[in-house]
Design a protein around this nucleic acid. Sequence first.
DNA 1: GTGGTCTAGACCACT
DNA 2: GTGGTCTAGACCACA
Lengths: 129, 129, 129, 129
Amino acid sequence: MFELDMRSRQPIYEQLVDKLKELIISEVLNPDEQLPSVRTLAGQLTINPNTIQKAYRELESQGYIYSVKGKGSFVNPTSLVKNTEKLVIIKKELKKLLSEAMFLGLRPEELIKLIHDLEPSKGGEQKND
Amino acid sequence: MFELDMRSRQPIYEQLVDKLKELIISEVLNPDEQLPSVRTLAGQLTINPNTIQKAYRELESQGYIYSVKGKGSFVNPTSLVKNTEKLVIIKKELKKLLSEAMFLGLRPEELIKLIHDLEPSKGGEQKND
Amino acid sequence: MFELDMRSRQPIYEQLVDKLKELIISEVLNPDEQLPSVRTLAGQLTINPNTIQKAYRELESQGYIYSVKGKGSFVNPTSLVKNTEKLVIIKKELKKLLSEAMFLGLRPEELIKLIHDLEPSKGGEQKND
Amino acid sequence: MFELDMRSRQPIYEQLVDKLKELIISEVLNPDEQLPSVRTLAGQLTINPNTIQKAYRELESQGYIYSVKGKGSFVNPTSLVKNTEKLVIIKKELKKLLSEAMFLGLRPEELIKLIHDLEPSKGGEQKND
DNA sequence: GTGGTCTAGACCACT
DNA sequence: GTGGTCTAGACCACA
């Protein structure tokens, strides 16, 4: 299910955050759906439960999920996630990446294609590599 | 010349890499032009030469510059930079950022605007905040 | 009657405590009035009786209700609730919240409005969201 | 300097977050001032460095401080902290606390006094019990 | 069973 | 030296 790269420079918990965000954004995980428990997921991925906790906590503070003691962790309804401040930051990062990509030869058409692939109508159909 | 934010979360050497990439991409620094030496740049910016070294090494491994022992570091002709493997990675990152941005409510129009801002005026006109 | 948010971060028993306090404070529940029994309330809300128990125990230790073995739980006459120690704690918390709110830009006028909203209509008129 | 209650129900790291926020809000700690290092503070308080880290990380994600690898943790300029979403939450909490306080006999005058004590002009003069 | 806190101790990345 | 990540293992609170 999850493919973690233990040798990556990117911390494991961040990889987890990214993967889970992806699943939430692409609506593979639906609002109020329960996530695997900290311990179960830790068992499956053979990593320390604390690492999963850290990822879940990060997702919670970013508004993607909520956790309830004694019950579990759940996906937040999307309406709660919207954060305008974050959008500003992301746009800045996009700008940087875009200029580098175009320098390296990314053709605008490809870019447009990339965008269309992400249109909401597609809802999780697209390949992921 | 360089404005480094010593208070930024982003490590100084990464800021340097980004700035230098920008200058190369926007062709402020031309192919085969010599970069300032590690020591002089360190002196100008009043930071540790090791930090500059690290930035130059990173740029070299990414193909943006080349170093000649005893002479200095130089900008690579752009044709050599066009690294398809790198493009694949960047496209993946773009995809991630784009889908998150759209999830958070970025309107496609804004995105198109972002792209157009970068394309025609490639000579370094655009503001960067 | 009670609207519990099963998805809230706040433990269910605490939500119960808050709701019941509200009802007592706004005098919807009058002194010496009997509260619903643990079991019936548990049945109505379809939650575990232990959770109700815990809420009642908490309210009792805070002086808002009293329990009589074999008979049930009852609202305390308000005079008994006036616990100066408790007030000290609450004032401390208020101070903390107030200073943070003002640091984040809460204007004193808004604060005054908040207070006036609570004072005159004490009978439970105000909206609670 | 810090008085931590190891027996409190409130987690240590949260107590730390509160104390540090207080110091930042009351401008005892000034913008860009360096906080004690994770290890030093851990040593002084004889608690685990990880616990300090957790507190610092929380403060960072709330915008009160920023941390730089290899350099240390620093107080953020206040302008960066302002977060409107958080204000909404705080106002809701204030409402709850206020109604409880008034039920317990807090006189409006005392409340007004509390507010005046916090006016920016006072800047950290007030007693803290 | 669930999430959450804390410790002790190791190791990495950055300056 | 600094912050940051990760593990192993203990214990608490909630349902």
